[in-house]
C-alpha cells in the first residue's frame, strides 16, 4: 500500500515540523468582523512595536465567539462589537473584571453597493427587494440594524425582505455580490479597505439604536497573558486609536 506508506511518512514529517514555527509569542485573537479591514493595520503596528508577538486572528460574529469561548475555545484576546458579550465572559468566570476594556464606538451605515442612490437612507430600504443585515441573534451590528428599522417604523414592512449574514462582513458580501440590494453594515467596512470605492453610503443616525460601544477582554486562560495585554495596549494607544478613527470608529 504505497498510499498508506506515504501517509505515514507525511505524519512522521508533521510531528517534527508542527511546532517548529511556534517560537514566537502567539496571541490568538477572536475579533468582531467589523474590524476585518482595520485590524490588519493594528497587527502591523504590533509587529512594529513587539516584533516577537505573532497575532493569529479569527474574524466572526461577537456572539458566536462568546459561545465558543464559553465552550472552551482557545482564544487569548476577545474583541467584541459590543460590551455585553465580554461582560458575560467575565460573569462566567473565564476572565477577570479588571481585564475588561472599551476600545471604540462603531457606526452603522446604509450601503448601496451599486451606487444608484447618491445618499441612500434607511427609508430607501422600502424600494429594495432584498435588504442584508447581520444576524441579530449573535451579531451586535445586526441587533443595531434591527433596532434602527424598528425605530424608523420599517420593520413590519420589510420583514419578509431581510436576509441575514452570519456576521457583519458576510452581510456586506451579500450586498457586494448583488444578492442583496442594500445592506445595513458597519461604516468601518465601507469607508476604507477593499470596499472603499464601491457604491454609496450614509450613516444611520445614532439615536435610532443603542450605541455600538465596543469592548474586549483578555482571557484568564491566555497562553501568553502579557503578550495578549500588549496587543490590547497597542489597540488602545494613540496610534492604534488613530487607525480605528481612520476606519470610521469613534472614541
Amino acid at each position: 500500500m504505497p498510499f498508506i506508506a506515504a501517509l505515514i511518512a507525511a505524519l512522521a514529517l508533521s510531528a517534527c515540523s508542527a511546532d517548529a514555527a511556534s517560537q514566537d509569542r502567539v496571541v490568538r485573537a477572536a475579533v468582531a468582523s467589523d474590524l476585518r479591514f482595520a485590524f490588519p493595520e493594528i497587527i502591523e503596528l504590533v509587529q512594529e512595536e513587539h516584533p516577537d508577538i505573532d497575532v493569529r486572528v479569527t474574524y466572526g460574529s461577537s456572539g458566536q465567539f462568546m459561545t465558543q469561548i464559553l465552550n472552551g475555545a482557545p482564544f487569548d484576546l476577545y474583541l467584541s462589537a459590543d460590551q455585553a458579550y465580554p461582560a458575560t465572559v467575565v460573569d462566567e468566570g473565564l476572565a477577570s473584571e479588571g481585564q475588561l476594556f472599551r476600545y471604540a464606538r462603531g457606526r452603522l451605515v446604509v450601503w448601496d453597493p451599486q451606487g444608484t442612490l447618491a445618499t441612500p437612507t434607511i427609508d430607501d430600504a422600502r424600494n429594495a427587494n432584498t435588504i442584508a443585515v447581520a444576524n441579530p441573534r449573535h451579531a451586535p451590528y445586526g441587533r443595531a440594524a434591527m433596532e434602527a428599522l424598528i425605530s424608523s417604523g420599517l420593520l413590519s414592512v420589510l420583514e419578509d425582505r431581510l436576509v441575514f449574514g452570519e456576521n457583519v462582513s458576510q452581510t456586506a458580501e451579500f450586498a457586494q455580490s448583488g444578492a442583496a440590494d442594500i445592506a445595513l453594515i458597519a461604516l468601518s467596512l465601507v469607508i476604507s479597505g477593499p470596499l472603499a470605492n464601491t457604491g454609496t453610503w450614509t450613516e444611520i443616525p445614532q439615536d435610532l439604536f443603542e450605541p455600538l460601544d465596543q469592548g474586549g477582554v483578555v482571557l484568564d486562560e491566555a497562553q501568553d497573558f502579557t503578550a495578549a495585554q500588549s496587543v490590547r495596549d497597542v489597540l488602545l494607544s494613540p496610534r492604534g486609536q488613530e487607525i480605528l478613527a481612520r476606519y470610521g470608529f469613534e472614541d
Binding site: 490568538r28 493569529r56 486572528v57 479569527t58 466572526g60 465558543q68 475555545a73 482557545p74 482564544f75
Partner: peptide
C-alpha cells in the same frame, strides 16, 4: 473547529 488559524482553519 471555530476557524482558528494554524489550529483549526
Amino acid at each position: 473547529g471555530g476557524n482558528i488559524p494554524g489550529q483549526t482553519r
